[in-house]
Design a binder for these strands. Structure first.
Lengths: 340, 340
DNA sequence: TCGTACCAATGAAACGATTCAAATTTGCTG
DNA sequence: CAGCAAATTTGAATCGTTTCATTGGTACGA
């Protein structure tokens, strides 16, 4: 098999100059109909495919955008990725996806790789505190947008979701449906997202003089962690059962639900209302469909791409931080108590 | 900000020739210690990052491998992707990931993109019957390995999992734990995977003269579809309840489980045993931990990369099809009946 | 018939790396 | 210290595009 055809081969075959072939590819209306067709036919016959490396070398940058996420398996990120891909495709770019898996080493590898590839810019939900490495990128002139993390606006643009507002929404909804003694179930408050959601919930509870909020620490953000909290509640008995429970994420909520429905001690939502966070696919198909807080993942992905484009286009770096407000999704698990 | 430093800038700064800098980068031991250090220092001071496009243009191909999957959100593919990335990294390549989302158009876009990028090769779990497009790739000399789909060995290499064997394993396990009247719950048998799993289950049932297998059609592969099958079983009553149920995937099984445990009509595994397929993360943390069939996703991803490497290295194309055998994971949902 | 404008097409000069034959230096040996 | 081999360094040629100043044609008005 001989090597693939180049633009020069096409030019010879069509009997035109290389520049003309290039024009057919990039500025079709600079070329007369007759020659354009001739060139296109040659391209087809030779099976020519443009060599992007050469193009990139000449124009100085690629048409790709690097995107590094903490975990592609996480539904939140999967949704963001998909939205970003779509938005990028619309403006003629492609997304190179990297999964750091919460691992700083892998993250560093991807950053290096993407720099060698001369990506137009980088979207990243960084592992821990990596401002040093990101500063380096900035110095090298690689436009960067932080995803799901607020940034020092003097340095980076960023997109994030307002977790405080989400927490408020959830607690307010429990209060609005008549519950007064509430509980918050969440992992370590060292995680920024968890702390913010709790803070928002506290804010809502303060608005009602007769309302209270108990914090139930869970070890981790998993179904199993939720279940052990649920088991604990079952053991405590009905007297100490909160009227409404807000879990820092849907997995925890599902765990609590399992524990409660399995033992059949309490009914959801009659004895206790339950609301989660993230609105994962499983929420709607839980034993009792789970109310939740939905994050605007689509918007997040699309906006990230838009902010990046802004940075790429303009010379002088004006950074923006965009914060979205999450949305309440009401399902059966928090149905209002019928009047008694 | 001035443009990024090139190899020539480094050469000038270090007072050597460009060839020497290149050697430092690619063949460090061809260079004396003294100059190597000097060059490395210059690289550091100038913040030089190799331009991969130029490198690629010269050597004729990239160091990347294209990977197109049907759905990154699907845990099966997520696992395969991760394994492929790791295996590729080990041999110094990076993976470009594309998500076709079962959409032939997006798939075609990614194929074109990857060709322009001159990827070393392509791993793909194709949308429907796209042998034409793949034939074209083959003609153009892009080594390709099919993932999760058997291939005509004269044309492509492929990696897949033996779904017939998986079906056999599941049914055999139900039989081995003393169940005789079995049921298969699955989506349309037009899906190859579903048909194969059913066929394997039938094979196992035939081995026991007193065993039977009923097929319960589900519309789709979701939790909700499973739940409606479960509701139907509950309605039919205990007399017609199968002793063991094999679901074509874990989501279906979780749906059946929800329906059954929620209404508290039957107990799992005492009244009916339940086994799923895929061993998703949720299986272990279901209300009753779910037995399942685990596919060797890691091996799948790693082997796909290895097969691809083989094709890339060798001139003459010898294709291989590798089929893996899945593995039984026993949990509480199929616990053996205690002697009565 | 000439001048002017416009449109298409041309082809040489980059872009930044790798490669490799040739030039130079170094290290030994006698 | 000459002579030779091995080790190191050099730099021009090359990869396949895009870009853009230049050339060649054609049409139109004066």
């Amino acid at each position: 098999m001989n090597r693939t055809a180049s633009i020069k081969d096409v030019a010879t075959h069509a009997g035109v100059a290389v520049g003309t072939v290039s024009n057919v590819l990039n500025y079709p209306d600079r070329v007369s109909d007759r020659t354009r067709e001739r060139v296109l036919r040659s391209i087809d016959e030779l099976g020519f495919v443009r060599n992007d490396a050469a193009r990139q070398l000449r124009v100085g940058h690629s048409r790709t955008i690097g995107l590094i996420v903490l975990d592609v398996g996480n539904p939140f990120f999967t949704a963001v990725v998909r939205a970003a891909e779509d938005a990028a495709a619309l403006q003629g770019s492609a997304v190179l996806l990297g999964d750091s898996g919460h691992n700083a080493g892998r993250e560093a590898n991807y950053i290096d790789l993407f720099q060698e590839q001369r990506v137009q810019g980088l979207l990243i939900s960084p592992v821990g505190d990596v401002t040093d490495r990101l500063d380096l990128l900035r110095e090298r002139g690689v436009p960067t947008v932080l995803v799901d993390r607020l940034a020092d606006e003097s340095k980076f643009s960023s997109v994030a979701v307002d977790d405080d507002a989400g927490g408020y929404l959830a607690a307010r909804h429990l209060l609005d449906t008549g519950r007064r003694r509430l509980a918050f179930v969440g992992g370590p408050t060292s995680i920024r997202q968890v702390a913010d959601r709790l803070q928002g919930a506290r804010r809502a509870v303060k608005e009602e003089p007769d309302a209270s909020l108990e914090v139930l620490e869970a070890e981790g953000q998993t179904v199993l962690a939720g279940r052990s909290v649920g088991d604990m509640l079952v053991e405590r008995g009905r007297a100490e059962l909160p009227e409404g429970i807000f879990c820092a994420n849907d997995l925890l909520a599902l765990g609590v639900m399992q524990s409660v429905t399995m033992t059949h001690t309490f009914r959801i939502p009659e004895d206790v209302a339950l609301i989660g966070y993230d609105d994962i696919d499983f929420a709607v198909s839980a034993v009792v469909p789970l109310s939740s807080i939905r994050q605007p993942t689509q918007l997040l992905g699309r906006t990230a791409i838009e902010l990046l484009s802004e940075e790429v286009e303009s010379r002088n770096p004006v950074h923006r931080s965009v914060v979205f407000t999450p949305e309440l999704v009401v399902r059966q698990s928090t149905a209002a108590l019928s009047a008694r």
